[in-house]
Amino acid sequence: MNTSKSLEEIADLLLKIASLLMLSGANTERVNLSITRFASVLDCEVFNLTSQKTIILTITDNKTKNSFTRVQNLPPHKIDFSIISAISKASWNAISRQWNFNEISKKIEDIQKQKRYPRYIVLIAVSFSGAGFCNIFGGDYLNMLVAFISTLAGLFVLQFTHKKQFNGYISVFLASLTASMIASTGMFYNLGANPEATLATSILFLVPGVALINSFTDLLDKNVLNGMVRFVHGVMTVLSIALGLFLAMLIFQIK
């Protein structure tokens, strides 16, 4: 049943699945497992090299032993756990119900069309986590209000610069500068019981938690290259956060 053309289509579908998972912040082992599962449903064997910016994949038809190779570059990452869970569910359904090619590709197209939460909900929710961090580090409710406002402004700048397609580290730097400037104002006027807590927590929403956790997950799975890439990306982000904070502290002469 598998002609050479459909082998090409299968390779494209598997690449689409792999790149969707990688962009949404899945660890490398999950990407490899998912496309192996989908390939087994389509009666193929798949061998792949997954990295942060490129995926190389060769599929072999189990019956005819024909094979096909394709390379794809990945756009910038954007974490989306809904896509990860939807693809995981689809892979199990594909195995248990023996889906054919068209059913799988239709399901993947549906998953791509899923909507994200509206922008204002994300802004408010993340600002509440900024306030929550401030409480954890011993701030009182006035400090938490300042942390809320600085996180809100910082995330707004981050989203705006992302939309204008700034370099990722530059936009993190600008967001960190904005957030810590507002928090430093609170420290300048000595608002609340513990203004240092506000300054330390106003920038925590930028910390690349998923990249850092995934880097060690990849290292545990012996995907050393991807693990190191994610770790270095995390360290670079932390450096740009610290640069923004450092600049704000210099401007306000905070020791």
Partner: peptide, 17 residues
């Protein structure tokens, strides 16, 4: 409770179901 709220904020940023 505030740790829980902080986690939910990030969960919404990561667009979980």
């Amino acid at each position: 409770i505030w740790s829980g709220i902080a986690a939910v904020g990030f969960a919404i940023l990561f667009n979980i179901p």
